[in-house]
Simulated assay, not measured.
Amino acid sequence: MPAGPQTRATIATELTRLGVRQGETVLVHASLSSFGWVCGGAVAVVQALLDALGPEGTLVAPTQTMGNSDPRHWSRPPVPEEWWPVIRDTMPAFDPRITPSIGIGAIGELVRLWPGAVRSNHPHASFAAVGPAARELMAEHRLDSHLGEHSPLAALERAGARVLLLGVGFHSCTAFHLAEYRVPAPSTEFGAAVLTEDGGREWITYRDVATDSDDFAALGESFESTGAVTRGRVGQAVCRLFEVDKAVAHAVGWLPLNRTHT
């Protein structure tokens, strides 16, 4: 027989059983479909996360907008080369207030829209946060530091935050990308439409680390073997909970020895 329905209360209880603590800061990556049937869908899940964290806790989620990028790099799907100038000239500028996230799921997008949410100002790799530490964590997000030392990811590490993978694997572990900034890594050119100081828009180019998550599943398996990961279930979702700083430290040691591509 299928499992019973998941609710705000059952999810909050199971998050607490997994080890989520009142008052802490958690970076969540989640797949709504992995929970099974949830009464209230993404709203109930976000409510449950906030319940488990309590009023002094802070919930953070990636709210990336990689569609606002140079079309010459697009492959899923690609677009004709003759379209590229039009896209660069007309792509709406990233606006943290209104630009929707892409490809990060319903739960992350709902965190962005949650009352009181604060979003970092990066045209590709923004995060959103809800809770007392939100503004401080989102304050710095330098253009040439998607997921590096001058990003909310590094701020989360300094704050002693933990990562919560809800029904997703280590391939979704953004924290590992911070390690790529700390080991030799290639850089590449990025493009994006951004707001200007006078409220207009412009297309800009800049260079940053060329991050790559293709081997994060193997990296995660190695990290989990150290015993630093708490694993359990919330609803039907297989979940993992671990500290950002421990994940980054492990990745810094693992990547130079094991990365099979650059």
Rank of each mutant, 00 (worst) to 15 (best):
A125W: 02
M91Y: 00
F223V: 11
R142W: 04
A159T: 07
G41C: 14
E221D: 15
F176N: 14
Y181S: 05
S222Y: 13
A192V: 06
R97T: 01
H177E: 10
L147R: 06
F223K: 10
P96L: 01
A125K: 00
L113D: 14
V194G: 01
S145W: 04
D245P: 03
V111M: 14
G191M: 02
G4S: 09
F35Y: 12
R88S: 03
H250N: 14
L153P: 06
V79L: 04
N121V: 07
A61I: 12
S31Q: 08
S213F: 10
P96D: 01
A249N: 09
R76V: 09
A237S: 14
T99D: 02
S75Q: 11
F223C: 12
A128P: 03
C39A: 15
V38G: 01
T205G: 03
S34G: 13
T10M: 03
E189V: 14
T211F: 15
E109M: 04
Q6G: 01
V20T: 05
V20I: 12
W203R: 13
S31D: 11
S222M: 04
R8E: 05
R17D: 12
V234I: 09
R21W: 00
A52S: 06
S222T: 14
V79F: 05
T25I: 08
T65R: 01
P2H: 07
L15N: 03
A218F: 09
S69L: 06
I11Q: 00
G36H: 02
F94A: 05
T65H: 02
A48G: 02
T99G: 03
Q6S: 04
V28Q: 11
G40I: 05
A9G: 03
L59Y: 04
A237E: 15
F94E: 00
G148P: 02
Y206D: 09
D95R: 01
G41F: 14
E202S: 12
R259T: 10
P100C: 11
R97G: 02
A155Y: 08
A106C: 07
L59C: 06
L257V: 11
V168N: 02
L53C: 08
I87Y: 07
G232H: 13
S34A: 15
H250A: 10
A12Q: 01
I204W: 07
T90M: 05
I104S: 07
V28S: 12
T211E: 12
R158C: 02
F190G: 02
D245R: 15
D214L: 11
E81G: 14
V20E: 03
G220N: 14
M91S: 02
L257R: 15
S120F: 03
E81K: 11
I104V: 15
P2L: 12
D70T: 09
G103W: 01
S126K: 00
V229R: 05
T196V: 08
A161P: 08
S225K: 15
F176S: 13
S187T: 13
D212S: 12
K246C: 06
W254E: 09
E14G: 06
H261R: 15
I104M: 09
H141I: 02
W83P: 00
A251V: 06
G23I: 01
S213T: 14
T260K: 15
T7L: 05
L156C: 05
D208V: 03
V229N: 07
E157M: 11
A139Y: 03
P115C: 13
E197R: 07
E157H: 04
W83L: 05
A61S: 09
R240A: 13
P5Y: 06
M138A: 09
G160F: 05
V43T: 15
G232Q: 08
